[in-house]
Design a protein around this nucleic acid. Sequence first.
DNA 1: GACAGCCTATCGATGCGCAGATAGACTGGT
DNA 2: ACCAGTCTATCTGCGCATCGATAGGCTGTC
Lengths: 195, 195
Amino acid sequence: MLPSETKEMKERIIDVAQGFVQTRGFNAFSYRDLAEQILIRTASIHYYFPKKDDLGLALIQRYRADFEGAIRNIDDAERSPKDRLSAYLKMFLDLSKGGARLCLFAVFSAELPTLSERIQDEVRIFYETNIDWLNDVVSEGRSAGFFSFSGESREVASAIFSFLEGEMLVRRVFPAEAHSPEIPPAIRLLLSWKG
Amino acid sequence: MLPSETKEMKERIIDVAQGFVQTRGFNAFSYRDLAEQILIRTASIHYYFPKKDDLGLALIQRYRADFEGAIRNIDDAERSPKDRLSAYLKMFLDLSKGGARLCLFAVFSAELPTLSERIQDEVRIFYETNIDWLNDVVSEGRSAGFFSFSGESREVASAIFSFLEGEMLVRRVFPAEAHSPEIPPAIRLLLSWKG
DNA sequence: GACAGCCTATCGATGCGCAGATAGACTGGT
DNA sequence: ACCAGTCTATCTGCGCATCGATAGGCTGTC
């Protein structure tokens, strides 16, 4: 098999693993589950990811990179804070479309004490990246008069993130509900979002 | 052994199991883990809870009952909506003291597809109980002039719950941080909480 | 008030299957 | 001929679960 295909296989494994993690959690899927889905043997997965922890690490690193790419894309479009935040919220909530999948942050946080230090570190970096970015958007938006709130902008950024993570847990439990609005009313209230 | 001691053993098992669930998740502890902690054999645990699912169900049913008792106690004290909400928030956030333990809702939601229907049903009831109660408090508080917000009170109730669940995940990832204020600033903002 | 028969709570032993993991052989492309 | 990639075969340990045994309390009836 070609080296290029090798790379694809590694990605394919991460793809499937990510699906399992987001639906069942990291501790509730096995190399056998992956192997059956991908149609290879478990030994082949061990070739790419000797330990399950290696797979977990690769998984969250890629997830983090994807996320960072996505917010860089949002910024490159150079829209207003309102539009940037809208795009972020959409991305975030689309992720849990129908409640089928959770953000990796939620899953890994729920299982945190069972995970290795290096994975826990990645989880922390993921959080900080998101809060830093949200903080920028929110404080810029306030300066520009789009948003209005009192107190620390970082506090609001952190509240938005917590709300989104919790909201995903809730949507999973009530998948039938129509969670339609682009911008959750709670966030409009929090920011005194105009328009 | 006396029947009264039997009851204690059942409770003791649930106590220890709940600790494991709140720290590791339901899929990441075993009857062996419980047995070692309690100093009995796994077979004895099966005597009380034939299947692990039976244990999980007993666990969340007791948790739900405890929670309902707690909010009934808050209501019985007949304080203002502000005081009732404060007490609720305190209870909720104390639960995750230092991020060591998560609310069962967060844990079970993260693992939802791996759990039995009857446990999933309990999770839904837990959510609805909390939202109904929060909705009462929040809308009463608005009528009484303590809170001020536009839109549906149920939307705000649901936002508070989502925020709290997400906040627990975050606190677990950053246990060092000082999460001091009795009332999270985000909730003050959301409700235009005066005082 | 004694004894039979049942109930409670625990145990040791064991089954069966799956978990993650490894060693070593095969294969096909360059 | 080599090497990446995949396989088969196999290991050890743990997962949940069940069985049959046992020790001792509880009960009702003669």
